[in-house]
Amino acid sequence: MEELEYELSFYKSGEKWGNKKDIAYKILEVDGLNSRAINYLVEVYGRNNQRDSINVLFDNLIKTNSVNPKIYLIRASERNAYFSGLTFSQRINYLKKAKALDNENIEATYSLGKIYYELFIREFTNNKKKANLDHYAKSSIDYFTELCSIDEKFRETTKYPLIQLYNYRNEKTKSKELKLDNFQTSYFPVSAFVGLPENLETDFSVNVITNVSDFSVSGVESALFSINWYSEHLNALNEPVLSDTLPTKIYRFTYLRSFDNPIVIRLENHNDIVSIHWKVSNGAGGYEPGEIIVNESKELTTEEWRLIENKINSIDFWNLPSAETEIMGTDGSHWILEGKYLGKYKVVDRWCGGAISEIGKELINLTDLKIEKDKLY
Score class of each variant (00 low, 15 high):
Glu2Trp: 12
Glu2Ile: 15
Glu5Ser: 12
Phe10Met: 13
Tyr11Ser: 10
Glu15Pro: 08
Lys16Glu: 11
Trp17Glu: 15
Trp17His: 12
Gly18Met: 09
Lys21Met: 14
Ile27His: 01
Leu28Pro: 00
Leu33Ala: 03
Glu43His: 09
Asn49Phe: 13
Val56Ser: 15
Val56Glu: 15
Val56Tyr: 10
Asp59Arg: 11
Asn60Ile: 07
Ile62Thr: 12
Ile62Val: 15
Lys63Pro: 03
Asn65Glu: 06
Lys70Val: 09
Ile71Gln: 00
Leu73Gln: 07
Ala76Val: 05
Ala76Asp: 04
Ser77Trp: 04
Glu78Trp: 13
Asn80Ser: 06
Ala81Val: 03
Ala81Ile: 00
Ser84Gln: 11
Gly85Asn: 08
Gly85Glu: 02
Phe88Pro: 01
Ser89Leu: 12
Ile92Gly: 06
Asn93Pro: 01
Ala98Gly: 05
Asn103His: 12
Asn105Trp: 02
Ile106Lys: 08
Gly113Asn: 06
Ile115Phe: 03
Glu118Trp: 09
Ile121Gln: 05
Arg122Leu: 09
Phe124Asn: 06
Lys128Gly: 15
Ala137His: 04
Ser140Met: 04
Tyr143Pro: 02
Phe144Gly: 01
Thr145Pro: 05
Ser149Tyr: 09
Ile150Pro: 00
Phe154Ala: 05
Thr157Ile: 14
Leu165Trp: 05
Leu165Lys: 07
Arg169Asp: 08
Asn170Phe: 09
Glu171Leu: 15
Thr173Ile: 14
Leu178Phe: 09
Lys179Trp: 02
Leu180Gln: 14
Leu180Glu: 14
Asn182Leu: 13
Gln184Thr: 11
Ser186Ile: 01
Phe188Tyr: 11
Pro189Val: 10
Ala192Gly: 08
Pro197Ala: 05
Glu198Tyr: 11
Glu201Pro: 04
Asp203His: 08
Asp203Lys: 07
Phe204Asn: 11
Ser205Met: 06
Ser205Cys: 07
Val217Trp: 03
Gly219Leu: 10
Ser222Arg: 13
Ala223Arg: 02
Ser231Gln: 07
His233Thr: 06
Leu237Arg: 03
Pro240Cys: 13
Ser243Ala: 14
Asp244His: 13
Thr245Val: 15
Lys249Arg: 13
Arg252Asn: 03
Thr254Pro: 03
Tyr255Trp: 07
Leu256Arg: 00
Leu256Met: 11
Leu256Glu: 04
Arg257Trp: 10
Pro262His: 02
Ile263Thr: 04
Leu267Gly: 00
Asn271Glu: 14
Val274Gln: 01
Trp278Thr: 00
Lys279Val: 05
Gly283Ile: 08
Gly283Asp: 06
Gly286Trp: 06
Pro289Tyr: 05
Ile292Thr: 07
Val294Ser: 11
Asn295Cys: 08
Lys298Asn: 12
Leu300Glu: 05
Glu304Asn: 11
Arg306Cys: 10
Glu309Gly: 04
Asn310Tyr: 14
Asp316Asn: 14
Asp316Val: 11
Phe317Ser: 07
Asn319Val: 08
Leu320Pro: 01
Ala323Pro: 04
Thr325Trp: 11
Ile327His: 03
Ile336Gln: 01
Ile336Tyr: 03
Gly339His: 04
Val347His: 01
Val348Phe: 01
Asp349Pro: 00
Arg350Cys: 06
Arg350Thr: 03
Gly354Arg: 04
Ile356Phe: 04
Ser357Ala: 14
Gly360Ala: 08
Gly360Met: 04
Glu362Asn: 10
Leu363Arg: 00
Asn365Cys: 05
Thr367Cys: 02
Thr367Met: 05
Leu369Ala: 00
Leu369Ser: 02
Lys373His: 10
Leu376Pro: 00
